[in-house]
Amino acid sequence: MAIVYQKSKGLTDLEMHYCPGCTHGVIHKLVAEALVDLNLLEHTIGVAPVGCSVFAYNYFNCDMHEAAHGRAPAVATGIKRVLPQNTVFTYQGDGDLAAIGTAEIIHAAMRGEHFTTIFVNNAIYGMTGGQMAPTTLVGQKATTAPHGRDRAHYGQPLHMAEIMATIGGAAYSTRVTVVDMPHMMKARTAIRKAFQMQMEGKGFTFVEVLSTCPTNWGMTPVEALGWVKDTMINEFPLGVFKDADSKEGS
């Protein structure tokens, strides 16, 4: 019998714990496939965050570190400084990266650390039960913002991909999503490019991926995918905000 589809060798055989309709699984797969196809997996060290993807170290089929909440970029810095020839990535959520770990991500980018960050933005704290994130939209309800995020009280969402693009050490900063096949293909390209640029020594590379949280958004999986396309993208526009390669080309 011919094999028409196979789980990536970049992922372990463990069943993932993610909720139905959550796109973490898709993003894991894109990262894993990129590492396999670029022939990097055997020399890769990944850093998992605290948040829904806290168990990512069980899913990626490469050496992994579990970091404290928000500290993945510092941990990755330590690893990459010891192993400059290896591939290093962090996989972080919005609370991890854009709240408690803001200093770490900004300064890793400032130093132009040669690792890749996959930033999964679903505009909410998932694991702890739907609390407000720095990327929660104005008006969006959260368990710590029961009447919706109030601009006067909490300000407006942080746009991390745009922020990273302003930092000299960042070579690549982009925002993608995985809510349908065309977007998935763009995300696939972006993640590959980030790892390639890392290995070419271009600098820090950052891929923000808009993701879903049907459970905490109170939606069905299909509604959640639609909400990303209809609402979330308006707040967080997709696109490439910095690309050291194209700058060199122009």
Partner: peptide, 26 residues
């Protein structure tokens, strides 16, 4: 070797965590 001045004590110790995990004397 490598010396790095971190952005905070918190970051510094987590860099130690990363380097130690990769087998370095840190």
């Amino acid at each position: 070797g490598v010396f790095l001045q971190a952005e905070s004590e918190v970051a510094a110790i987590n860099m130690v965590y990363g380097a130690a995990g990769s087998g370095a004397r840190v």
